[in-house]
Structures are given as C-alpha cells and as structure tokens.
C-alpha cells in the first residue's frame, strides 16, 4: 500500500470540502478499496472516511424510500419495509459476498465497487485499459468466463460485479450526488457507464462527487419481484449471471415488467427490449424466452463465456414464470 492521509469528516459538507482535492478517495466500509490499495490498483493520497456519516433509511412522501449512502448492506437487507415492499432488493443484497462483508459494506461503496476482472487486479503482469488507460486489454483474448457479452468495447469487456445494483436498476432508483458542482440526482440507468474508449471511468461521477443517498420510487400494489443469482458455488461467489425483475399482471396479461441482468455487461443491464417485448402480452413461458432472445440478439460472447446468453435467458424465463404463478419468494 502506498502511504496516505486519513481523515474522518464531521459531516457531508466537510467530506465534500476534503474530497474535492485530486488524489482523494472516499472510504466506505473499505471492503473493496482496502483490497485494491493493497494490490496497488488504487493509490489514493488521501482517504476521507464517509462510513460514519448519518445512515438513515426514511420513507418519502411519494411512498418510496430514501437510503443514505452510509447505510450498511446488512441494515438495508434486513429493513422491514425493504423486506416487505422491495423483496428483490433484500434478496439481491443477501445473495452477495458474506455476512461479514455485508456488515461492513456501505450502499455508496457497493455502487462504486470495481470489476473483479483478474487482469484489472494483476498490476505486475497484465495489460488493462481500466487500470491503466491505453495499455491494452488482456481479457479479450484471455480467460474471459466472467466477462461481458453485452455493451463491451474493443478497450474493455469487464463486468460490474454488484448484486445490489442489479436490483436498483430494475427498481428505477435515483442516485443522490453532491459535489463541487452542487447537489444533483442521477437516474440509476445513467449512473454506471458502458466502457467505450474510457473504461477507466465506471460511472458518470466527477472528481469530488459524493454519493449521498439512493431513492427508491414506490412499486405499484400487486407488483411481485425477486432476484435470482447463478454462480459457481451455492454461496459466497460472484454472479455468472443474475436477474432482478418486477412483474405486475392484469388477468394473465403483463401490465408492467422491469428486468435487469447482472454479470453480462460493464453496468447493471436494464433489459428494455425484453420489457417492450413482454408488455401487454400473455405471461407464457414462450413469451419469456422470446423476450430474452430479443435482449441478447446483439450479444458478443468471448471465448469462455458463450454460455451466458442462454443461461441468462433461461434464468429470466424461470424467474418470470415463478412470479407469474405467484410462488417466487
């Protein structure tokens, strides 16, 4: 680890003042950043510890929820309103990492966690445009089982590893940000970026921007939702693919459906094509498979991950079928 100064701000304004200086990183639970610093992938000169800022979960006037960035992952997953009204969010968080890590990890840090691409981590032996812009990408022709099949670029085929963010994408969450340019809100779909020729930038945040909260809109009554993760072992492993989905039926027709995939792209992948294909259609297994096919028609699998479109499609169909029958948890 390279040396750094550590500061604990007294409030968000203090954090913003300190965070506006180049070379500074905000520190949440440290479960990703400490690891990246130890590997010298990240080399901040100053850490501003925002893990002690207020960590409230509040109901909003529109019937939604406002979740402060410092809320721990466990606290969010166990919150009674989240369990009752946003089960896909509880389930997504509980499917991630381990209990110890969820006790440490913050909502802000979960949003900003970086890819688990092994070439990104390998500072000594690998080229990585995300870690070192312009150096090249060893994943394209390398071991790329966990990499992207949608939205990748010549420069980068990394995936975003978060489970929680897949649920937030399906929920149309809004990210509250404060920074040198003042406070603003960013729709979840515009928060993370596709790699293009700037894979070093995971999100649309600018220098000094602090995530202050995440807002969830209410889900219409009668909406069912869940999260399904497919991984190499039953627990404590990152997703190969995952699906977060909400479904509202009218009779046997689909009135409203929202779908997001994890493990397939550089960002949580909101499946707009699949949603459009399902709207107003009867909720049948074939319709679900057709919708998934529409989403993955442009998939560009790599050497080791050609299984992902089919796996993600079958997972989506299985989950929607359970939701439609009313027996998914």
């Amino acid at each position: 680890m390279t040396p750094f100064d550590y500061a604990r701000p007294i409030d968000a304004a203090d954090a913003l003042r300190r965070g506006a200086i180049a070379g500074t990183a905000y520190l949440g639970g440290g479960t990703n950043l400490v690891d990246l610093m130890r590997e010298t992938v990240a080399r901040p000169e100053r850490l501003v510890d925002v893990s002690g800022l207020p960590a409230a979960i509040e109901e909003t006037e529109d019937g939604g929820l406002l979740i402060a960035a410092a809320v721990r992952n466990t606290a969010l997953a166990e919150h009674r309103i989240v369990r009752a009204r946003y089960p896909l969010l509880s389930r997504a968080i509980l499917a991630g990492a381990s209990a110890q890590i969820r006790n440490m990890a913050t909502v802000g840090g979960n949003l900003l966690q970086r890819t688990r691409c092994t070439y990104f981590y390998d500072t000594e032996g690998s080229r990585c445009n995300k870690r070192q812009p312009g150096s090249g990408c060893d994943a394209r022709e390398g071991f790329n089982r966990i990499h992207a099949v949608l939205g990748g670029s010549d420069a980068c085929v990394a995936t975003h590893p978060s489970d929680m963010c897949v649920a937030l994408a399906a929920l149309d969450a809004t990210v509250h940000v404060d920074g040198p340019a003042g406070p603003r809100t960013i729709p979840f779909a515009d928060f993370h970026r596709l790699p293009g020729d700037r894979p070093d930038r995971d999100t649309n945040l600018e220098l000094g921007d602090l995530v202050t909260a995440v807002a969830l809109p209410p889900l219409p009554a009668g909406t069912r939702s869940t999260y399904r993760k497919v991984r190499d072992r039953a627990s404590y492993a990152f997703a190969l693919v995952s699906v977060a989905t909400t479904l509202e039926l009218e009779g046997d027709r689909i009135k409203q459906v929202r779908i997001a995939f994890g493990g397939v792209a550089h960002k949580p992948w909101r499946a707009m094509r699949a949603e459009a294909a399902l709207l107003d259609r009867p909720a049948t297994h074939q319709a679900f498979l057709d919708a998934a096919a529409a989403e993955f028609v442009d998939a560009r699998p790599l050497r080791d991950n050609a299984f992902k479109p089919a796996l993600a499609s079958r997972t989506l169909a299985a989950v929607l079928e359970e939701l439609a029958m009313g027996d998914a948890a």
Binding site: R8, G29, T31, V34, D35, D49, Q100, N103, M104
Partner: peptide, 15 residues
C-alpha cells in the same frame, strides 16, 4: 458485537 473481516478493515476506522 457485529462480525467483520479484520483483514479488510483499516484499524483507524475503528477508533
């Protein structure tokens, strides 16, 4: 009383 991983914890964070 809460379980955490001490390897990913900077000691300064736990003042």
């Amino acid at each position: 009383g809460e379980r955490i991983l001490s390897c990913l914890a900077l000691a300064v964070q736990y003042d």
